[in-house]
Amino acid sequence: MQRNLTPSPDVSDLAARYVTWALEFERTCMESGRQASRYFFGEGLSLYTRWARTKLATQGRPTFVLANIEVAPELRGRGLFSLICGRLMSEESGLKSDALYVELVGEPRLAAWLTRNGFSKCPHSDDIAPSFYLLRTGSASSELVEDKLAELPSWTQPQTLR
């Protein structure tokens, strides 16, 4: 029996709500130029998010960090996290950071998905719960810092988490 990999509307709506919230969070951080962190709370999802330039693997680059992800048991395995990453990485999302960073991944399936989708394991990462990052193809943080409105480079297209 093959599982239906199409996300259910509640998972899709929850991912969309998070991404809308995340883009507004990133906008306020970039405007202030200050590192910040906040929790997103949605029905079935708690996601601690950070915006920084101080992650070792992406030093100096505007980095959007997904950390401490908690998903309700009934929503696990339904593609929520791959939807969130996919939407953040899409050219249409409007995410301006040069890097997407996923902290302390303790789930082997998620670590494999991140690797398949172009994320690199952080060099000084813990083996039990490594962190991963993805840089924009051809990222130019200096152009973003100088606030030139050059066309943002693309992310690699994600696969569905299976």
Rank of each mutant, 00 (worst) to 15 (best):
D13I: 11
T160H: 01
V145S: 14
V102H: 07
S141H: 13
A140T: 11
R87P: 12
P130N: 02
L152A: 04
T156I: 11
E103Y: 14
C85L: 11
N4A: 06
L114D: 00
V105N: 02
I69L: 14
A67W: 15
N68L: 09
L144K: 08
L134D: 02
L100P: 00
D127V: 10
L135Y: 02
A129L: 00
S141T: 09
V105R: 06
I128V: 12
E26I: 01
Q2F: 09
Q59L: 12
A72C: 00
G33D: 05
R162V: 10
F25T: 03
R162C: 09
S93Y: 05
R78T: 09
L100K: 01
F40N: 07
V19T: 07
Y101V: 00
T6M: 11
L161E: 02
D10L: 13
K55Q: 15
K96Y: 10
G42Y: 05
M1S: 12
F25G: 00
S125Q: 07
E74W: 12
E146N: 13
L56V: 13
A57M: 00
L45D: 06
C85W: 01
F40V: 07
E151F: 14
L83C: 03
T137Q: 15
K55I: 13
E91H: 11
G33V: 03
R38S: 01
I69H: 07
T6E: 14
L47E: 09
G77W: 04
K148W: 13
T28N: 06
S32P: 06
E146V: 09
D10E: 15
G106S: 10
Y133F: 15
R27C: 03
C122W: 07
A36H: 03
L152D: 01
R34D: 06
M89K: 04
L104T: 12
V145G: 11
E43H: 14
L88M: 07
K55N: 12
S8G: 11
L80V: 06
L88W: 04
I128T: 13
Y48N: 10
G86V: 01
D126Y: 03
A52M: 12
A22L: 09
E74R: 11
S12P: 00
R34L: 08
R3N: 03
C122N: 06
T160A: 07
S154H: 03
L110G: 05
E24V: 10
D98Y: 00
R136S: 03
Y39W: 15
L88D: 04
P153K: 07
E74I: 07
L88N: 04
A22F: 10
T160Y: 03
F40S: 08
R87K: 15
V65Y: 09
S8K: 13
